[in-house]
């Protein structure tokens, strides 16, 4: 078990201070900054299995979508009929009052977490016994299948999608709305980072590493690997579910396939971000997510219509020339590093 080094703490504090003041320094960018924290959280959460445990899941988007739908629908349910709200071609208009909006909001967030955790528990029991490619393919199919299921649930709007409750009319200035979401994203980052950095230093984290490095050996040592695998997936689902809820509110409209269960964007991004930064390392996904988000935004501005090609190229370059990710690259160059940045595979094996 390794302690949080002083440098880690300094870095974390620096990042937090930056996070606290960023919206004041760059008021026009609050929305993008909110997404930056969300990206960091989904990458960190994915890395719990993908990196630390060695289970490459393509299906974590399920928790994202489930969280998003739960947050949206439980904000509506206590006050209006969800069926009327989503009715195709309906003519009614609905508006939340200030108290309705926020009480519903809190309820939605709560249910987003519950729904995501429950989903992880159920599917974890079913599919986490699979390993390697079988697990990866199964989770990929799971993401697609659940998306299709949600696209056919009439009460959630089916293919029409689900519009979220709008910010109460006339309540506080728009800047406060954006800050409201921003600081939640930021808080989520702090919580997620602290939990994961704590967990990977405990026996629990060691077990996850043991599963990655040799599941059979871990089992033969008497570890109930299934328990650890499901628990880590649940933790991951908790954070990704909350991210889904936030993204739902930030986007304002849920399309089942293109927003909620969008395997081709958020689903694959969370993996790419972890890989770019360096998976299985605490700071890897953080750096990967910030890098990815920054370049994403830049390409959108300067390579209109070609942004995906440019981004694809960057990913190819990183995978080919920096297979250990950005962080891994620096660590390999400076082999001497003994920092806590490394729950790095090679060092674990020693």
């Amino acid at each position: 078990m390794r302690d949080f080094t002083k440098n880690d703490i300094r870095l974390f504090i620096a990042l937090c201070s930056l996070g606290l003041v960023a919206p004041i320094l760059f008021p026009a960018y609050i929305n993008q900054l909110s997404f930056a924290w969300i990206f960091v959280v989904i990458a960190l959460s994915w890395d719990m299995q993908g990196g630390h445990m060695g289970y490459n899941s393509f299906g974590n988007i399920v928790f994202f979508g489930v969280g998003m739908y739960a947050a949206a629908s439980f904000q509506i349910l206590p006050f209006f009929s969800l069926g009327d709200w989503t009715e195709a071609g309906g003519v009614q208009t609905f508006e939340h009052s200030v108290s309705q909006y926020f009480s519903g909001y809190a309820l939605g967030i709560l249910f987003a977490a519950i729904a995501a955790v429950a989903t992880a528990f159920i599917f974890g029991n079913l599919i986490l016994k699979m390993r390697g490619h079988y697990f990866a393919i199964c989770t990929l199919a799971l993401g697609v299948a659940i998306g299709e299921v949600f696209a056919s649930i009439e009460i959630l709007g089916a293919g029409q999608g689900l519009s979220l409750a709008v910010w109460p009319r006339g309540f506080l200035d728009d800047t406060y709305r954006r800050l409201f979401f921003y600081y939640q994203g930021f808080l989520l980052f702090v919580l997620c980072f602290l939990s994961i950095s704590y967990i990977i230093r405990t026996r629990f984290g060691m077990t996850l590493n043991a599963i990655r490095d040799g599941e059979d050996k871990a089992e033969s040592m008497g570890l109930n690997t299934n328990f650890y695998k499901i628990s880590s997936w649940i933790l991951s689902a908790f954070f990704i579910g909350l991210c889904g809820a936030l993204v739902g509110h930030l986007v304002g409209f849920i399309d089942p396939i293109d927003v909620a269960f969008s395997g081709a964007t958020y689903g694959i991004w969370m993996i790419i971000m972890a890989i770019i930064g360096g998976k299985g390392r605490l700071w890897g996904p953080v750096i990967g997510a910030l890098f990815f988000h920054a370049f994403n935004e830049i390409f959108w501005t300067y390579f209109l219509g070609w942004q995906r090609v440019a981004l694809g190229l960057i990913i190819v370059i990183i995978v080919v020339f920096f297979p250990e990710g950005i962080l891994g690259f620096f660590q390999v160059r400076k082999k001497s590093s003994v920092s806590a940045l490394s729950t790095q595979p090679q060092q674990q094996k020693k």
């Binding site: 870095l11 960023a22 960018y29 993008q32 750096i287 910030l290 830049i298 501005t301 950005i326 940045l341």
Partner: peptide, 24 residues
């Protein structure tokens, strides 16, 4: 090592903010 990472993070943030274009 961590200094490098701090630099990286700061660099990326600065880069984004500079490059995404200024308000007109």
């Amino acid at each position: 090592m961590n200094k490098k990472i701090s630099k990286l993070i700061l660099g990326f943030s600065a880069l984004t903010l500079l490059l995404v274009g200024s308000a007109t």
